[in-house]
Design a protein around this nucleic acid. Structure first.
Lengths: 239, 239
DNA sequence: CCAAAAGTGTTCCGAATACACCCATGG
DNA sequence: CCATGGGTGTATTCGGAACACTTTTGG
């Protein structure tokens, strides 16, 4: 890899949807400070940028190395630049030891990304943690996740982001559960279906859910090309 | 000033409202390349950050130096990190000469800010340029302005930003003109007034417009404290 | 036949839109 | 008295919210 730029980093808040809950991918910090307080903290995936990379590319690379996935939805949503953000001191010490650089101030550009948990190939030792009950993370990573969630909540109302989190084939119920998990509120089942039924880019499949002990639900898929056409006619995806 | 960090800069898109048009504050680039093509280009105000400053502080400082104003509304809306963004070459050469640093790549954090043109004290040699007919600026500054305008259009629908651009005392008509200038569409006068009339934080004054050769309009002011209360009751400022 | 979730329509209310005239002032 | 923009109300349409029952499957 090219030279690292010790002033700018990229952090990725990777959201996934599993067991009806919205989750974030966290990494266990290497235990360099073995024996000291805080050796087991969790952190967001991220890294210093290399000198010649566009930040988007840095973020994409970070993601590919971590998940084995390409073509992931990513959105830059914020910058965290407080000169004191690399605290508490043991966190900073950890960073200096693992990077081998005398960093003391890093401006980080934060992305959130959306992945289909079932189809990803998580390589490193990572943890899918429910967003609504996070432990204390290193640096300002808790704050970064809160901001990411705010951005996601805002943007999922008008962009077809839910299909990045759902499996390729999904039921309307799964879709509704996902919205409820992200927005943190219950939605009316009939009104929800009423609103999405007219969306022609949701293709009903002949397949149905299997191995459930109740009436099986129909599966759908999202047709991106149809969506692009549709979005020119009406204006997008207001849920 | 403390050491400059040659990797990160801040650029400010400063919007103002004047003569019924939305304008941006531009600076004439110093003519270091005298005699060469492009010596007269315009640019956004901005600067490299100093090592120990939060970016917000850098941006606020840039603004104060330029306008003499404090307490300006500022919003960080994007990051521009393309390694090739400091082009064409003569623009880069200009930057290297004026900064005295061998910069070759700068990630810039972009803010937009809103000021009341009449009440500002512009110090340097600057130009208020209508946003809808910009010349070619240096680097990627045209693109930055486009993105800033998109952000402003999005956010002015739900935040009371218009009062940052209007004078302290303003008429409903000025307010409507401002919305029309930003959104780029005509609004229905009666419906507009109907929507803002219930807003208790708009205080009617006894004063009226003067020196117009038609029925003078009533002046209003925005009461920020009342707004803060109001926003807790209902949800803010959806226009 | 029981449990469990799928799937479907109607009514009501508030918000958004469309639309036209009289009023106060300066010249 | 004329030109100019200020200021006001009503009728209609559209979208969001509330709400309950029948259907299909597995066990």
């Amino acid at each position: 890899m090219a030279n690292l730029n010790p002033h700018v980093s990229v952090d990725c808040v990777i959201f996934g949807f599993q067991a009806g809950k919205l989750k974030v991918l966290l990494i266990e910090r290497e235990k360099v400070l073995w024996g000291r307080l805080g050796g087991h903290k969790l952190k967001l995936p991220g890294s210093l940028i290399s000198e010649s990379e566009d930040l988007d590319i840095s973020a994409i690379r970070t993601l590919r190395e971590l998940t084995g996935l390409d073509n992931i939805y990513m959105k830059q949503f914020g910058v965290f630049s407080n000169p004191a953000r690399l605290s508490p001191p043991e966190d900073l010490e950890w960073l200096q030891k693992t990077s081998g650089l005398m960093v003391d101030r890093v401006v980080t550009i934060a992305y959130y990304s959306l992945i289909k948990i079932g189809e990803s190939n998580i390589t490193e030792k990572t943890i899918w943690h429910p967003v609504d009950e996070l432990p204390e993370l290193i640096f300002d990573h808790n704050r970064i996740i809160i901001k990411a969630l705010e951005a996601l909540r805002r943007e999922i109302r008008t962009e077809p982001l839910c299909f990045e989190l759902l499996p390729k084939k999904f039921t309307i119920r799964q879709m509704q559960d996902l919205y409820e998990a992200i927005l943190g509120e219950k939605l009316d089942n009939r009104n929800f279906r009423k609103k999405i039924r007219p969306m022609e880019f949701l293709i009903p499949l002949t397949e149905k859910e299997m191995e459930v002990n109740h009436k099986p639900a129909r599966l759908f898929r999202f047709d991106k090309k149809l969506y692009e056409k549709h979005r020119k006619v009406v204006s997008g995806f207001d849920l």
